Amino acid sequence: MELVFAVSLLLIVHAYFGYPLSLKVLGRVRPKPVIRRYCQPPVTLIIAACNEERRIGEKLENTLALDYPREKLQVIVTSDGSSDGTNAIVRGYAAQGIGLHVCPERKGKENAQKEALEKATGEIVVFSDVSTMLDPQGISEIVANFADPSVGCVSSVDRVIGRDGKPCGEGFYVRYEMWLRKLESRANSLVGLSGSFFAARREVCRGFSGDMQSDFRMVLASNRMGLRGVSDPAAVGYYRDISDGRREFDRKVRTVLRGLTVMFHNLEFLNLFRYGLFSYQYFCHKLLRWLVPLFLATALTANAALSLKSTGYAALLAVHCGFYGIAAVGWWANSLPRGVVLKVPLYFVTVNAAIAVAWWRFISGKRMVMWSPSQR
């Protein structure tokens, strides 16, 4: 039992801290900086929308304010079976160069993006959600990374904005992920992109799947071609946070479930002899992280068994249970605690509970293809 407890803890620590530390060391020993140069290739901006009449106008006004040559920027709003006034609003912007592609039947975000790609003419394809606002220089910044021939796709950096439209404090989860992406970019390649704002070379988009998570799969397509994915801190996507914690929990479950589907269709990337460092990243960032709920369960079980024979392990069990107790109080209070000591347990337990639910649904044969935009 002591071995089970020790190994479980070791794997949990490596998933969240050992992996980033190894990337930090690699990034210093053999950094892979991105060669950025401002350039203006033809770009296609694809905006996926589904019943977005409340927000689509704001998104299109934000798009028209982008500082990129209009003759080189093709904008396509791809409507995923919208049944409200979304299509009519978009048609009102036709004279300003906004194109509309209507998917008559709702089949999910990726299918809508795939259909829009058939009409795309740009060398670089940028994908963005309706809820995500961009800086005027947003397209120019993200495109500058493609001056580096080793780059196949680029992720933005997520920033949370308040209800007043101004930047506000970011959640622990967002800050951790942005930090991890920075380390991955410096050492080698990202393993996943920000689904709300990312870009890829047109050739990387070939074979685009209409039923798999595009932001995850795009990185895999890049690495399959010998290219990499990077994160650009100058390309920022602003979005409003989801105020309802339970709705955010459901979103995390959907995201992981979709990610598991992609991973199990691309197990080849675990082949260290073929993909080298990226295989290690793929294992640590995805598979190992998604196995943490299992390690948490084995650690708690082993700790409980050991506590029957040792006062030391009994004390550790009390700390163990206290950690989960703090998370439970934060969850049932239905409001985010202010102190870091309270935030971390709630964040950690919530994320891993969502992963556990996603695993259960995946093993049960459920798959997530249909996409419903989060209400922010």
Rank of each mutant, 00 (worst) to 15 (best):
R28P: 00
K286D: 09
Y313F: 14
S82W: 07
M225I: 02
K119I: 01
V29N: 01
Y93G: 01
G325R: 06
S140F: 02
E115G: 02
F348W: 07
W332Y: 14
R217G: 09
Q137S: 15
Q137E: 14
G99P: 00
G322N: 00
G138A: 13
R247G: 12
A297I: 15
L64A: 01
E118F: 00
S279A: 09
W332I: 11
R258I: 02
R175M: 08
D164I: 04
A94E: 07
M263P: 03
F348V: 03
V369F: 04
L308S: 05
R28Y: 06
K343G: 03
I142Y: 07
R361S: 09
L26W: 03
Q74Y: 09
Y313K: 11
F273Y: 12
E61M: 06
L11G: 10
V25S: 00
V369K: 12
G237C: 04
A6I: 10
L190Y: 07
T63A: 14
H265F: 06
S243D: 10
R376N: 08
K24D: 01
F348E: 04
T44N: 04
Y324V: 10
K309H: 08
P337H: 02
L117Q: 11
V13F: 11
D158N: 11
R228G: 02
A65F: 02
A235Q: 05
K343I: 05
V319D: 01
V344N: 02
R55M: 11
